[in-house]
Amino acid sequence: MKTLYKIPEAFTDRPTTYCPGCPHGIAHRLVSELLDEMDLTKKTVIVWPVGCSVFGYYFIGTDAVEAAHGRACAMATGIKRSHPESFVMTYQGDGDLASIGIAETVHAAARGERISVIYVNNGNYGMTGGQMAPTTLLGQVTTTSPYGREALANGFPLKVPEMLAAIDGPAYIARAALDSPKHIIQAKKFIKRAFTAQRKELGFSLVELISSCPTNWKMTPEEALKRIKNQVLPVFPIGELKVDEEVE
């Protein structure tokens, strides 16, 4: 038998703390595969966020630090600047990165910090029970937008890659989705380019991964992935938004 796919060594044996069908595990696996394939696992420091993936260091087997809510890009900056030989990435959710941590993210991007950001967007605050996030769709019901998000009261969904692509510091900015095998293969390609951007010291890199939250969306895992395709991707279209030609 020829092995086509195999769980990477960097993905630890410890069962994840995520709900059944939560795509965080898919994102973890993609990151783990690339760290192993690119021979980065032993030189990597991952800065973990506050949110559902707060225990991420149990699941991806690298050196790790746990940041305060939203501060991952600042902490990653401190690590990378004082130890440039390390491969430094953050793994953050949409509440962490796009709300409380937006300043740290934008300025790390503007400085062109040689760090890679994996930004998982599931449109709500999962861990705290499904509150409205900056990325929540208009009309979407959450525990703090019980009548649906309304633009006049709560503003519009925040598109982070589009924002960051407009500034000069980033070398690679993309959005992928975790809703289908095809999109997952594409997501891996994008993350590989983000990692390459750091390895070649080209600048800041970020990949947004559109994810689901079956528990708080009150859907089966399968229904939640269908919702990504039908409702989320029209608002958050996938693709590469900024590509330094050297990331290939």
Binding site: S82, A103, E104
Partner: peptide
């Protein structure tokens, strides 16, 4: 020069971890 004191101390935290 950080974007805020909040960011500055978290950069210090990151550097201290190394």
């Amino acid at each position: 020069q950080a974007e805020s004191e909040v960011a500055a101390i978290n950069m210090v935290y990151g550097a201290a971890c190394t």
